[in-house]
């Protein structure tokens, strides 16, 4: 079932994901800087930050338990696994039977629970505040994401991500109205899940409005580097899911090297457009009050359920 060339392609894609993820983050930040009439730090800035953080010594609070130190590794491992099962370049993935779309949501939930527990570990006011808010965002975003994935699974008659993408990429051009709703819901969820505006602000310095940043306040050095890398990887994986589900054209169907090589520039182009779009969304919207977030996410959840209902009404 598992072949060596397939495994090689799989590892290449995982490695590519880890390498490209900081660049995508850098690209979004650069676009934001341009739109704010700033020159920007360049798209390689996340790499420089990572290098600096890895080299620094890790300062850990006195009250930290081993859970606190293990969490960055768990987080990174979860995101790598997520990158392994999401079709990035091709749909022939030896690891894809390990986890399907439902398990993908499970992976994100696992990462979220670990980072929240780690945030509560030291027992600072901001840590617990961040954990509570992260779980609040999570309990609405998670079912919404699941419903989006359910809708596409119903279209493709499979929950395996590789099969879904294959089905969507190769089917004759059909307009699925349900996919439009699912796409809007997915965009809303991915903004919330990746701690972007309007739910959270990745570059905030105001502690009281923080969600993700409040949880990682106590981290430093290599641990912080791994968390930053995981966050970048999460953004990358989410972008790839969005691309694979809603714009799957150009993805390699087989596992041969040439197909994958051809799929790479297509992917880069799509990511560049997607990153720019994300920067535009972030520029034109304001961050909302924390208690507006449930309304926003509730709307995403309802849209996703609506997508599923529309699929039942119109497409069967």
């Amino acid at each position: 079932m598992i072949s060596w060339p397939g495994l090689a392609a799989q590892f290449t894609e995982m490695l590519l994901a880890v390498l490209l993820a900081p660049i995508l983050q850098g690209w979004v930040n650069q676009c934001r800087a341009w739109m704010q009439n700033k020159s920007g730090p360049g798209i390689l800035q996340p790499y420089r930050t990572l290098r600096k953080l890895f080299a620094k010594e890790a300062v850990i609070a006195y009250g930290a338990s081993p859970l606190f130190r293990a969490t960055p590794y768990v987080l990174f491992a979860c995101m790598c696994l997520a990158a392994a099962i999401v079709p990035i370049l091709g749909t022939d993935l030896p690891f894809s039977p390990a986890a399907d779309a439902i398990a993908l949501v499970g992976i994100f939930a696992l990462a979220r629970v670990f980072i929240s527990l780690a945030a509560m570990d030291i027992g600072t006011a901001f840590g617990t505040l961040g954990a509570r808010r992260e779980m609040m965002v999570g309990f609405l975003a998670e079912p919404a994401l699941l419903m989006v994935l359910f809708t596409v699974s119903l279209i493709a008659h499979s929950t395996s991500l590789a099969t879904i993408v294959q089905h969507l990429a190769q089917a004759k051009f059909v307009i699925y109205p349900s996919l439009a709703f699912a796409g809007v819901a997915f965009t809303m969820v991915s903004l919330a899940e990746n701690a972007r505006i309007p739910v959270d602000n990745p570059s905030t310095h105001l502690e009281l409005t923080m969600i993700h940043e409040a949880m990682v306040l106590e981290y430093s050095g290599r641990h912080l580097a791994l968390i930053e890398l995981s966050a970048a990887l999460k953004l990358f994986v989410y972008s790839c899911i969005g691309i694979a589900l809603f714009f799957p054209f150009g993805i390699a169907a087989g596992g041969d090297a040439l197909g994958l090589l051809l799929a790479l520039p297509v992917l880069v182009a799509k990511l560049a457009v997607g990153g720019f779009a994300m920067a535009v969304i972030e520029m034109v919207s304001a961050k909302m009050r924390i208690f507006r977030a449930p309304e926003y996410l509730g709307a995403a959840f309802l849209l996703a359920v609506l997508a599923m209902l529309i699929h039942f009404l119109l497409e069967i």
Binding site: V113, M120, D121, T128, M135, G138, F139, L140, F301, V305
Partner: peptide
């Protein structure tokens, strides 16, 4: 589908509850 959505919501809330349980009892100061 509505039922499936409710199940997903309850399952996600269970995660919230358990983070609260474990975090408050065993973690922190």
């Amino acid at each position: 589908p509505v039922a499936a959505a409710a199940v997903a919501l309850a399952a996600a809330l269970a995660g919230y509850v358990m983070v609260k349980f474990y975090g408050v009892v065993f973690l922190g100061q």
